[in-house]
Design a binder for these strands. Sequence first.
DNA 1: GCCCGTGCGAGATCATCGCTCTCTGTTCGC
DNA 2: GCGAACAGAGAGCGATGATCTCGCACGGGC
Lengths: 252, 252
Amino acid sequence: MSTEQPGSSGTGSRGIGSRGTGSKKPTARAVARESLTAEILVLARRHLAEHGADGLSLRAISRDLGMVSSAIYRYFPSRDELLTALIVQSYGNLGDAVASAADQPEASLRQRFIDICAAVRAWAKGHPQEWALIYGSPVPGYQAPQTTIEPATRVIMLVFDVVVAAWSAGLLEVGDGELDPVLVTQAGQVLEGLGVGDDVPPIVVARATECWTHLLGVVSSELFGQLANTFDPADRFTLWCWANLADRIGLR
Amino acid sequence: MSTEQPGSSGTGSRGIGSRGTGSKKPTARAVARESLTAEILVLARRHLAEHGADGLSLRAISRDLGMVSSAIYRYFPSRDELLTALIVQSYGNLGDAVASAADQPEASLRQRFIDICAAVRAWAKGHPQEWALIYGSPVPGYQAPQTTIEPATRVIMLVFDVVVAAWSAGLLEVGDGELDPVLVTQAGQVLEGLGVGDDVPPIVVARATECWTHLLGVVSSELFGQLANTFDPADRFTLWCWANLADRIGLR
DNA sequence: GCCCGTGCGAGATCATCGCTCTCTGTTCGC
DNA sequence: GCGAACAGAGAGCGATGATCTCGCACGGGC
């Protein structure tokens, strides 16, 4: 949810609100703009869910709104901007869903990890088009702006946290310095960027990323039909995969 | 390569060729059709590589061919049919690339497995749009016809074969009947459909599928930009992942 | 060897799309 | 209150996929 992301529309935050400093009355025009922006996003999300990312048509949305097509451009300067807003929202929604699944303080680490994986899959199955939007092939010609990478990291961080916890508990198999030096360097930069304590070894980042890519692979495979005719109702198969991944990070 | 897939266009194979029984003279018209169909596919592949799946425009292709747009429809009744032909071709190309990488009789099983993974990744990096076409999010509104699932299995079979070989060599950890009964059933159906000997245990299918989905996840993550700012030049990371997968199936 | 059916390309047409421009009415800030 | 900024309407541009009809040329059956 959280429909207040559309600050990305740019034109809207130029001189209207002036809500940065004072708390002037919100200017009927501004609230109308905000509400219409939100409404556009809701309709866009609906169209996205029903017709997919490239079935998303500004004209169709404007029709549903009873507006003329050109009016939409007052709120989103282009289709790509709308897509960006939807992507940010989707990352947020997925993050919310997974975070609430991960928020089980009394569950075992292994259970929490598996819950996270299952939550990712559940959200993906519930919102296939959104999943495809954020984790599928990049939309043609669409270049993900920098805005989208920050919310994207949130879900990964949940996985990362569990792996760190596993390492803290002494469960993660660390190996003895046999990690490729390039990986060590790259992992070090990630840790630096994250501001994590220097004591976290690079293998933690590598394992977390490995888990994440595998998680993506399993979910996308199921969602994109790669498992058809094999483990088709994939509930058990995915569960088995999560268990295997948990084993991999020492959560037996 | 193998430009004779367009049999899907339907209208073409009605009464023209009559090459099913006798070897009548190929009918200048038929060879023209065949060559033009092939040319369309070549151009389509080029456009696909340059502008992505949804940048593929029948009109643009017809322009490059010096034809009028409506003429294309004599050869492919719709854009989706063209996409289907491209998908089949892409599966074939990937299969060829990986098969040739796997054809190293004197290499160790582990090395062969890693070579297969690396070959998949290499092909994907060399043909990102094709990869997105076959393993990315389904093209909007496009429903993959049954025609595409057979060539899709070919690459998976290469992975499956290695896992079977690992099992034959007694390397694969089989466990002792602890596999979920649902997985056992589904794996059994797969084995039955494959006509593999009854002695192959279900865990082999499950492990192979697991490897495959993880392989897909790693390659797609890299290709779709999910590894940006982490293991960005992902050569070493992916190699490490392949090694881990090899470990997983007992190929130490 | 001719002839009618069929394949083939051209051209026009339709509905849709993203996006731009101009115009008029409304709202806001000073 | 007034000028400037905003909002929506409407027309329009160039492009897309798809359909239809029209002639022309080819080719198998008589």
